Amino acid sequence: MKLNKNKTTFGRHETFPLRYGWLTKGVEVVGKYRDIFHEREHENAMTKLGIGRNMVNALYYWLQVTGLVKFEGGVGEVSELGKALLGNDGDPYLEDEATLWIVHWLIASNAELATGFFWFFNHYSAPRFRDKDALQSLEDFVEQELGIKRAHTTLKSDLSTLLRMYSPVASRGGEDHLDSPLASLQLVDTEEGYGYSSLRTLRPFLPPVAMHFALQQRFADQVGQQGNKQEAAIPVRELLYGGTGWAAPGAVFRLTEEGLMTCLNQVLEHYPLTYELRDTAGLNQLYRLTPPQQPKDVLSNYYKGKAV
């Protein structure tokens, strides 16, 4: 979804990074007990989920951010996306690396419910940084770009949780970090004697379906916001750098220009009737040749072994 300064969220994860098994367990339990996360049922939720009270609140948040469960008045319903991604016909045990890349995209592209994460992957471009410098940049972004005020402690919590969730060095984050599935994507690293790095690289093993999923969601979201006006193309530069308020797959997946082009060409090979790259008047654009698929359909086709 597009960044909207009137709809932002920071720090609702209770400082708990997403853990292995949380999303799957959440989807499974909500499928059986729709009111499991209702405020009056927190004791029950702690028992059935096997986690503490604050962790229940964190899982409630991560289920919303990823869109795997829709809540209304504390009552949840597993979304079609949730069923396709983590249902019996999907990848409930996160055995496919593509699943993790897609979960990452769902978080980093959610400007409304995970604004700090959206900022980091779509706006913060420093390849190497110290946490205090990144925090200052986040505070500047919130104040100058969004024109809002958020507590220093809230923004610090958001950044700290992000770094613990994506950094592969468990000892820096303590016990809470040991089960963070997104650390394996190596999108954030630690550098001894300096701080952190988040480098754009070629990433030749990025699963084409992850990029396809991101592109289809991007096209679908834009069409939905624009009503009947269907935008059939996106400049490759916009996919690489963003800058229009939409999440940029190249930035979210930390790809260099060559890495993005390589991945896009792989997507074109896997989905030949869906996209086309054209250079018109010096502007390289990605065109969609068919109406955008629903994200759940992209996943269903992939997990069933169909590439259409």
Rank of each mutant, 00 (worst) to 15 (best):
2 K>R: 15
5 K>Q: 12
9 T>Y: 02
10 F>M: 09
13 H>P: 04
14 E>G: 04
17 P>Y: 12
29 V>R: 09
31 G>M: 00
36 I>E: 06
39 E>R: 15
42 H>V: 13
47 T>S: 13
48 K>E: 10
51 I>Y: 08
62 W>Q: 05
66 T>A: 04
72 E>F: 03
75 V>F: 00
77 E>N: 02
77 E>M: 02
78 V>K: 02
80 E>Y: 04
80 E>T: 07
81 L>R: 01
82 G>L: 01
83 K>N: 02
93 Y>K: 14
93 Y>Q: 15
103 V>K: 04
104 H>L: 14
112 E>K: 08
119 W>G: 08
122 N>K: 06
127 P>I: 03
143 E>M: 11
144 Q>P: 00
147 G>I: 10
148 I>K: 14
156 K>Q: 15
159 L>K: 12
173 G>D: 07
174 G>D: 07
179 D>P: 01
180 S>G: 12
183 A>I: 07
187 L>P: 03
188 V>E: 08
188 V>S: 07
189 D>A: 15
189 D>R: 15
196 Y>M: 04
200 R>V: 06
204 P>N: 08
206 L>I: 11
207 P>V: 11
212 H>L: 05
216 Q>F: 01
218 R>G: 07
221 D>N: 13
224 G>H: 12
230 Q>A: 12
240 L>M: 15
244 T>G: 00
246 W>S: 06
247 A>R: 05
257 E>Y: 08
259 G>W: 06
263 C>V: 05
263 C>N: 14
266 Q>P: 03
271 Y>C: 04
274 T>F: 00
277 L>E: 05
277 L>G: 03
278 R>S: 08
282 G>Q: 13
285 Q>L: 10
288 R>N: 01
296 K>L: 00
297 D>V: 13
302 Y>N: 06
305 G>Q: 09
307 A>K: 15
